[in-house]
Computed example of a mutant assay.
Amino acid sequence: MPTPAMLPDDTTGWTLDPVRAALVVLNLQRRFVRALDQEGAPIHQLLTNTCRLMSAARAAGVPVIHSVPVRERGAALHVRQPGAPADGGGEAFAEEVEPRIGDAVLTARKHSAFARTRLDSRLRDLKRDQVVIAGLVARVGVMMTAADAWAQDLEPFVVADAVADHSAGGHEFALEWVADTCGAVTSTEGVVEIFTPAASTAEAV
């Protein structure tokens, strides 16, 4: 996983705000997690960091929204799955990041979480114009979701150490591309630090 010192420079000037943000978690179903784990991706860190993000978001009152692909798309997510078992368990979420009551789960028809879903309207209803993006796969779903968010006048923040790809090079490319074109790249620690004061304020109220 990239360290904060390895992140591309921010050119957006945006400031993440828990009152404006929603956390969007992409494609963390067991079949995709298993496939990337077999390829040597840093899945343990991905799940640990995403779990931290989800906990901090819930405590701060930041909406948590999960996006999953329709079942028939399978390998079109660009997760190679040779010999993957055809069991129903693959459709379940990885245990560490299972949705909880209050979370939303949307089914996307394309790589982007905005593709033929209610994500944009849901964000508007919640008065959220920033999206914090975590999950799989960095060069596919993460990039396209960030680009779609930017195209709809939202501010995407990709969490560098809470996304993964098939290779370190692919992971790095995705982060550089987002930073160059449509969004900000941040770290789990940075997001959690911003969300935690908001959680303390909410508890005091």
Rank of each mutant, 00 (worst) to 15 (best):
P42V: 03
R58N: 00
L119R: 02
E96P: 11
V79G: 15
V163F: 05
V163S: 01
T12N: 02
G13I: 04
T117F: 12
A76D: 11
M1P: 15
W14V: 01
Q152H: 15
V185S: 09
Q130K: 03
D37H: 13
G74Y: 05
A59R: 04
V137Y: 10
Q130T: 01
T12G: 04
E172G: 13
D161G: 00
E172R: 15
E155A: 10
L77A: 09
F195G: 00
W177L: 14
R71E: 12
V137H: 07
V142R: 06
G90L: 02
A76M: 12
H171D: 15
A92M: 10
E95M: 02
V97F: 06
R122F: 11
T12M: 12
N27D: 15
A113Y: 06
V178R: 13
H171R: 11
P69M: 13
R118D: 14
D148M: 13
A174C: 04
S200T: 10
W150K: 08
L126E: 14
W177A: 13
F93G: 05
Q152L: 15
A76L: 13
A75V: 05
A149E: 06
R128H: 13
R139F: 08
D125T: 09
T188H: 10
L36W: 12
V24W: 10
Q38F: 14
D148S: 11
S121C: 09
E98M: 09
A104S: 14
S187W: 07
Q130G: 08
G183Q: 08
G83V: 05
P69G: 11
A92D: 15
L123D: 09
N27A: 02
L47G: 10
D125C: 06
Q38I: 03
V185L: 10
P99E: 06
L46H: 04
R124H: 11
A202R: 15
A41M: 01
V142K: 02
L106Q: 06
T117S: 06
V163H: 03
D180G: 14
S167I: 00
P156I: 04
A162H: 03
D161F: 00
G88H: 07
A134N: 07
T196Q: 12
S121D: 05
A60H: 07
A115C: 06
L36H: 05
L28M: 02
A21K: 06
F173A: 02
D153V: 04
Q81N: 02
P197Y: 13
A22F: 01
V70T: 12
A5N: 12
I194P: 06
P8E: 00
D37I: 02
A56E: 07
R116M: 08
A86T: 07
T50E: 03
A204G: 01
P85M: 00
A151E: 15
T48L: 12
S55V: 13
V79T: 07
W150N: 12
Q130I: 02
F93T: 03
N27Y: 09
W177Q: 05
A199K: 02
D120R: 08
D180L: 14
T48S: 11
A184T: 13
